[in-house]
Amino acid sequence: MTVRKLALLAPFVFAFAASPALAADAIDGVYVDSGGYVEVTVAPCGQARCGKITRIIRRKPGESDRDAHNDDPALRDRPILGLTLLSGLQWRDGAWRGEVYNPEDGNTYRSVVRAGTNGALEVEGCLGPFCRKRIWPAKSR
Protein backbone atom coordinates (compact mmCIF):
# COMPACT_ATOMS: atom_id res chain seq x y z
CA MET A 1 0.00 0.00 0.00
CA THR A 2 1.34 3.43 -0.83
CA VAL A 3 1.94 6.15 1.72
CA ARG A 4 -0.80 8.24 0.12
CA LYS A 5 -3.40 5.46 0.52
CA LEU A 6 -2.36 4.96 4.13
CA ALA A 7 -2.70 8.69 4.77
CA LEU A 8 -6.24 8.62 3.33
CA LEU A 9 -7.24 5.62 5.46
CA ALA A 10 -5.73 6.87 8.73
CA PRO A 11 -8.67 9.07 9.83
CA PHE A 12 -11.09 6.16 9.38
CA VAL A 13 -8.90 3.74 11.30
CA PHE A 14 -8.54 6.18 14.21
CA ALA A 15 -12.26 6.96 14.20
CA PHE A 16 -13.13 3.27 14.54
CA ALA A 17 -10.45 2.63 17.14
CA ALA A 18 -11.80 5.40 19.35
CA SER A 19 -15.43 4.46 18.82
CA PRO A 20 -17.42 3.70 21.99
CA ALA A 21 -19.24 0.98 20.06
CA LEU A 22 -15.99 -0.92 19.66
CA ALA A 23 -14.98 -0.24 23.25
CA ALA A 24 -18.37 -1.54 24.38
CA ASP A 25 -17.54 -4.96 22.99
CA ALA A 26 -14.35 -5.00 25.03
CA ILE A 27 -16.12 -5.69 28.37
CA ASP A 28 -19.15 -7.76 27.34
CA GLY A 29 -18.75 -11.31 28.59
CA VAL A 30 -18.96 -13.65 31.55
CA TYR A 31 -16.64 -13.17 34.54
CA VAL A 32 -16.07 -14.78 37.91
CA ASP A 33 -15.93 -12.42 40.89
CA SER A 34 -12.58 -12.15 42.64
CA GLY A 35 -13.68 -14.55 45.41
CA GLY A 36 -14.87 -17.21 42.96
CA TYR A 37 -18.40 -17.16 44.34
CA VAL A 38 -20.53 -15.94 41.43
CA GLU A 39 -20.53 -15.51 37.67
CA VAL A 40 -21.33 -12.03 36.41
CA THR A 41 -22.52 -11.45 32.85
CA VAL A 42 -21.81 -8.00 31.41
CA ALA A 43 -24.05 -6.99 28.53
CA PRO A 44 -25.93 -4.02 27.08
CA CYS A 45 -28.84 -2.64 29.10
CA GLY A 46 -30.41 0.30 27.33
CA GLN A 47 -27.74 2.82 26.34
CA ALA A 48 -25.31 1.51 28.98
CA ARG A 49 -23.69 -1.73 30.12
CA CYS A 50 -24.72 -3.70 33.20
CA GLY A 51 -23.38 -6.75 35.01
CA LYS A 52 -25.76 -9.26 36.61
CA ILE A 53 -25.14 -12.35 38.71
CA THR A 54 -26.09 -15.17 36.37
CA ARG A 55 -24.80 -18.14 38.38
CA ILE A 56 -23.90 -18.89 41.97
CA ILE A 57 -20.75 -21.01 41.90
CA ARG A 58 -20.56 -21.52 45.65
CA ARG A 59 -21.95 -19.81 48.72
CA LYS A 60 -19.84 -17.85 51.13
CA PRO A 61 -19.69 -19.58 54.48
CA GLY A 62 -22.45 -18.25 56.71
CA GLU A 63 -24.17 -16.30 53.91
CA SER A 64 -27.62 -16.94 52.49
CA ASP A 65 -28.68 -16.69 48.86
CA ARG A 66 -30.49 -13.41 49.66
CA ASP A 67 -29.39 -9.77 49.59
CA ALA A 68 -29.32 -9.77 53.40
CA HIS A 69 -26.97 -6.78 53.87
CA ASN A 70 -28.91 -4.31 51.72
CA ASP A 71 -29.40 -0.90 53.33
CA ASP A 72 -33.07 -1.04 52.33
CA PRO A 73 -34.90 -3.57 54.56
CA ALA A 74 -37.48 -4.11 51.81
CA LEU A 75 -34.75 -5.52 49.52
CA ARG A 76 -33.07 -7.86 52.00
CA ASP A 77 -35.13 -10.85 50.93
CA ARG A 78 -34.42 -10.57 47.19
CA PRO A 79 -32.35 -13.37 45.68
CA ILE A 80 -28.67 -12.83 44.90
CA LEU A 81 -29.12 -14.72 41.61
CA GLY A 82 -30.12 -12.13 39.00
CA LEU A 83 -28.89 -9.20 41.10
CA THR A 84 -27.36 -6.31 39.14
CA LEU A 85 -23.85 -5.58 40.46
CA LEU A 86 -22.67 -3.19 37.73
CA SER A 87 -25.09 -0.57 36.47
CA GLY A 88 -25.18 2.47 34.24
CA LEU A 89 -21.73 1.83 32.78
CA GLN A 90 -21.02 4.35 30.04
CA TRP A 91 -17.80 4.95 28.13
CA ARG A 92 -16.21 8.23 29.29
CA ASP A 93 -12.62 9.39 29.53
CA GLY A 94 -11.07 6.06 28.51
CA ALA A 95 -13.05 3.80 30.87
CA TRP A 96 -16.52 2.49 31.66
CA ARG A 97 -17.99 4.59 34.46
CA GLY A 98 -21.10 3.87 36.47
CA GLU A 99 -21.95 2.17 39.75
CA VAL A 100 -21.09 -1.09 41.47
CA TYR A 101 -23.26 -2.70 44.14
CA ASN A 102 -21.51 -4.75 46.82
CA PRO A 103 -23.87 -7.33 48.34
CA GLU A 104 -21.31 -8.00 51.10
CA ASP A 105 -22.02 -4.61 52.70
CA GLY A 106 -25.22 -3.56 50.90
CA ASN A 107 -23.73 -0.34 49.52
CA THR A 108 -23.45 1.10 46.03
CA TYR A 109 -20.24 2.81 44.95
CA ARG A 110 -19.04 4.91 42.04
CA SER A 111 -17.20 2.54 39.70
CA VAL A 112 -14.58 2.54 37.00
CA VAL A 113 -14.42 -0.61 34.89
CA ARG A 114 -11.79 -1.55 32.32
CA ALA A 115 -10.89 -4.56 30.23
CA GLY A 116 -7.92 -6.21 31.91
CA THR A 117 -5.23 -8.62 30.78
CA ASN A 118 -6.07 -12.16 29.64
CA GLY A 119 -9.73 -11.20 29.14
CA ALA A 120 -10.27 -10.23 32.78
CA LEU A 121 -12.34 -7.30 33.99
CA GLU A 122 -10.88 -4.67 36.32
CA VAL A 123 -13.63 -3.39 38.61
CA GLU A 124 -12.90 -0.44 40.84
CA GLY A 125 -15.35 0.78 43.47
CA CYS A 126 -14.85 4.26 44.90
CA LEU A 127 -16.14 6.16 47.89
CA GLY A 128 -14.95 9.73 47.60
CA PRO A 129 -11.24 9.71 46.72
CA PHE A 130 -10.71 6.18 48.04
CA CYS A 131 -10.95 3.29 45.57
CA ARG A 132 -10.57 -0.46 45.77
CA LYS A 133 -9.84 -2.55 42.68
CA ARG A 134 -10.82 -6.15 42.09
CA ILE A 135 -9.91 -8.35 39.14
CA TRP A 136 -12.67 -10.57 37.80
CA PRO A 137 -11.19 -13.25 35.55
CA ALA A 138 -13.05 -14.25 32.41
CA LYS A 139 -15.03 -17.45 32.86
CA SER A 140 -13.18 -20.48 31.56
CA ARG A 141 -14.98 -22.20 28.75
Rank of each mutant, 00 (worst) to 15 (best):
F14K: 04
R132D: 12
K5F: 10
R59C: 07
D105W: 10
P103L: 10
T2K: 13
R92I: 09
V3D: 14
G82N: 07
S111E: 02
F12S: 12
V3A: 14
P79M: 06
P79D: 12
L127W: 14
S87T: 14
Q47I: 07
L75S: 10
A15P: 01
D67T: 12
Y31P: 10
A18R: 13
D72S: 08
Y37T: 08
V13Y: 03
V100R: 00
K5Y: 02
F16Q: 07
P79C: 02
E104T: 01
S34C: 08
F14Q: 12
K60L: 08
D33Y: 04
P61K: 12
A21R: 10
P137A: 08
S87P: 09
R55F: 07
G116H: 07
E39F: 00
P44Y: 12
G106S: 10
G125S: 01
R55V: 07
F16N: 08
N107H: 15
R134G: 10
L6P: 02
A15R: 11
Q47C: 00
R49P: 06
V30L: 09
A7M: 14
A23I: 01
R141W: 01
G98Y: 04
A15V: 03
I27H: 05
K139T: 07
R58W: 09
T54W: 06
D105S: 05
S19Y: 12
W136E: 02
R66A: 03
S140I: 11
V38M: 01
A17G: 03
V40M: 05
R92S: 12
N118W: 12
L86N: 02
L75Q: 13
S140A: 12
V123C: 08
W91A: 09
R78E: 05
S87E: 06
N107M: 04
R58C: 05
R66I: 00
A115I: 01
L8H: 09
Y101A: 05
V13K: 14
R58P: 06
R134N: 08
A24F: 04
Y109H: 11
P137C: 00
G82R: 03
W91R: 14
G82F: 13
A48L: 05
D105F: 09
A21W: 10
V112D: 06
A120M: 00
Y101D: 00
P20Y: 07
N70L: 04
K139H: 09
W136H: 03
D33S: 01
E104Q: 03
K52R: 14
K133E: 11
R110S: 15
V42P: 11
R132I: 03
D67L: 00
P79H: 08
G29A: 13
E63R: 13
R114Y: 06
P79A: 14
K133V: 15
R141G: 15
P11G: 09
L6D: 00
V30F: 02
D67S: 09
A24Q: 15
P103Y: 12
C45P: 04
N102P: 02
G62S: 10
L121E: 00
V100D: 09
